[in-house]
Design a binder for these strands. Structure first.
Lengths: 252, 252
DNA sequence: TAGTGGTCTAGACCACAGA
DNA sequence: CTGTGGTCTAGACCACTAG
């Protein structure tokens, strides 16, 4: 990804040789002067051009390859990669941070909590914890006096037995999980749904109002840790994703 | 980022020293043995531990920092970073590819097209092309005989004068733009909206049905190239994002 | 101010794929 | 085969900052 090994600030910072070379190559590619498939100079050519050691140019070109801007092939050289518009960095905000950033008071309400064996009749639940036990939590996130989002969560107690003892009336499950359970992979599904009557009532919106639904599954290795569905009021919440062709997650 | 400079295959590949060190550190972090805030060994300690040069361990730790797994602070050391659930790689699919991948026939319909000076009364339009001209396009993406998405697009003709001569009845604006106009930054906003009567009619859904709305702005340098709003039938389309704490776009 | 990371050098050997 | 990239070494100087 991105800013890569040379720091974090995007294009700015001290004008190190590394950054200069990188900026030069990026400029050629982003300006279109070097289109997709164009072969960039060999490492030894860049060495000569910039009068530096091979490791220096190697690092730059390797970073660009890691960023997806170019592809490297032994014996053939390095080539400008085809642009990948379809990939973006999505910011999935922490709900508490999102609410407080809007200057509203965040409050969390536990609506329901239940520990039980996973139900074989519910495919999602059985997939989460086959032959195991689950902790089911329903809660609500408030922005001031208005409901902001509903959350329905299943935690695999076989994978996270410590969750059994946590008081989720005091602490939101997401914040507890983030701080206590490392994870290795996750998947989001983002959809638009019409609020059903029960949901509409809890979100204090008219029946059928459009809501943004975020379903997230999180794994640690092969083990599924949790499955959560967060339903946001469509009138209060948008997801925003900023990105560049170089896929810089931290960048501007 | 991520797989970083040492190739691309995720955790696999030749057991180079680089990969061994990286795998060791990642294992400690992902297993929870080194929790958030834990200081990892100094570079000179890792040098001694693995009996290698400093550049070798420096590269590994720098890659892990670029991946967001750790944070580095001069004079203090390198520390395990707090997990960043909020960041994900979002796959923004090409609509044609998305439709054909479902085994349906893709068809594109141009509904309206108009070249005109940017209207100062429309903030979004004026922001796109102040004192310039815009090309406004409305079109529809079909999956078989069913509408799949509506698209409303503004192209800044001052930034992309070539667009003036293109026949957008034959080619979708997105596919033309991707192939002809390099860009440097973009921004997505994802929202859930209730279909208005006109929109519902064109999408062949009941009034008020939930739709997923994707608004994308694209820049080349400081110049705003295009502003597009794509409205997907909520019942036919979800966005999916897969990711890991290390933010590997290419990885599994 | 001492010690960390940030960067760079001038070499080297190797694997591998293209010609 | 030949030449590319992949990796690694054993140093070096510097910037920054935590103590």
């Amino acid at each position: 990804m991105e800013g890569a090994a040379d720091g974090e600030a995007e294009g700015k910072g001290a004008p190190t040789l590394n950054r200069r070379i990188r900026a030069d190559i990026e400029a050629k590619i982003l300006s279109g002067e070097w289109g997709p498939g164009h072969r960039i100079p060999y490492e030894h050519e860049l060495m000569a051009q910039y009068g530096c050691a091979r490791m220096t140019v190697n690092k730059v070109v390797s970073e660009l390859a890691a960023a997806g801007l170019i592809e490297r092939r032994r014996r053939a050289g390095s080539f400008v990669a085809a642009p990948r518009i379809q990939s973006a960095i999505l910011q999935i905000p922490d709900i508490e941070a999102e609410v407080t950033a809007r200057g509203e008071a965040y409050r969390y309400e536990l609506l329901r909590q239940e520990r039980r064996p996973a139900a074989r009749s519910v495919p999602a639940e059985w997939a989460l914890a086959p032959r195991g036990r689950v902790l089911e939590i329903e809660c609500r996130h408030m922005a001031g006096s208005r409901p902001f989002a509903l959350e329905h969560r299943l935690i695999n107690l076989s994978a996270v037995p410590e969750a059994e003892a946590v008081d989720f009336a005091r602490q939101a499950p997401s914040s507890w999980l983030v701080g206590h359970v490392p994870w290795t992979a996750a998947e989001h599904k983002i959809a638009a749904v019409n609020a059903l009557p029960e949901m509409a009532k809890r979100l204090d919106i008219p029946d059928g109002s459009a809501c943004l639904e975020l379903v997230r599954r999180t794994w640690r290795g092969d083990e599924n840790i949790t499955l959560v569905r967060q339903t946001f009021r469509g009138d209060l919440f948008d997801l925003v994703a900023r990105f560049t062709p170089a896929q810089t997650p931290n960048g501007g």
